[in-house]
């Protein structure tokens, strides 16, 4: 594999992570539990989609051949998407949404912190900009995790169920794919294995403060980053890509 292809694939993986979570969160728009949180989750969504757009635009430049951020986002099928499995999991309820966001924010924060110092200037610039936003995302999801975990009996139970169910999707972030390993060797990526202790420290601290517990089961899902997805991603893409598939190149 050529260096330029590794760079392209790595940028795609970063973009897909934020794109798919952004698309998931966007489902809350006008359905939030209260007006203020409706706006909060939509703000986070727009940050994530903004980050994804910058990365897709870069990926399009790397690819050439008249590719644009839109052709890359809207004309790839499920197996070509390289996001982690956690990010495509359904919203289910507010507890799942907050827990999913928290698990990703804690990882995203550590990842961007490394990427802003690595050798690819474009990735580093995007990471630097997004890190400010993600610092707030992490603060937001941490506060809601604590608030609802250390809340009423019902909110506590719901948060624990969400943690138990989503826990098996967290390990994937720290198992490097071939692309991630090669991109790291090129000096443009993070060594994700090294991010795990930092992630775990934060996650443990907040979950403990929320009076919740980390599940003892060790089984972890894997595959999304290599294009092996759960059944959910197809539905996300069907909705997200419909307009560009039905009316290719349409603008509005």
């Amino acid at each position: 594999m050529q260096d330029s292809d590794i760079r392209f694939q790595y940028v795609l993986h970063l973009a897909d992570n934020s794109m798919i979570l952004g698309q998931r969160n966007a489902e809350w728009c006008s359905h939030g539990p209260v007006l203020e949180q409706d706006i909060a989750i939509t703000n986070i969504t727009l940050d994530l989609i903004g980050e994804a757009r910058s990365l897709y635009a870069y990926a399009a430049e790397l690819k050439g051949e008249n590719a644009t951020e839109d052709t890359i986002a809207f004309t790839r099928d499920v197996k070509q998407y390289k996001n982690a499995l956690l990010l495509e999991q359904p919203n289910t309820d507010w507890a799942y949404t907050v827990v999913r966001q928290f698990f990703y924010d804690a990882f995203h924060f550590q990842l961007l912190n490394v990427l802003q110092k690595r050798k690819d200037e474009r990735i580093a610039e995007i990471a630097h900009k997004s890190l400010k936003e993600v610092t707030y995302h992490l603060k937001w999801s941490s506060e809601w995790l604590i608030r609802l975990g250390d809340g009423t009996d019902i909110s506590r139970e719901k948060m624990q169920i969400a943690i138990n169910d989503l826990w098996e999707y967290t390990g994937e972030f720290f198992i490097p794919t071939e692309i991630e390993t090669k991109a790291f060797e090129l000096g443009i990526a993070a060594d994700v294995e090294k991010l795990k202790p930092l992630w775990l420290e934060k996650v443990k601290a907040i979950i403990e403060q929320a009076t919740l517990t980390i599940p003892s089961k060790n089984f972890q899902q894997n595959g999304g980053k290599n294009g092996l997805h759960s059944e959910h991603l197809g539905f996300i893409l069907a909705e997200m890509q419909f307009m560009q598939r039905a009316y290719p190149g349409v603008e509005w």
């Binding site: 007006l35 203020e36 949180q37 909060a40 703000n43 603060k139 937001w140 506060e143 608030r147």
Partner: peptide
Amino acid sequence: SLHAADVTMAIANARDV
């Protein structure tokens, strides 16, 4: 104005809204 359970949430909500 906005609704919030306590002062931390009120400032966070104010930031977002």
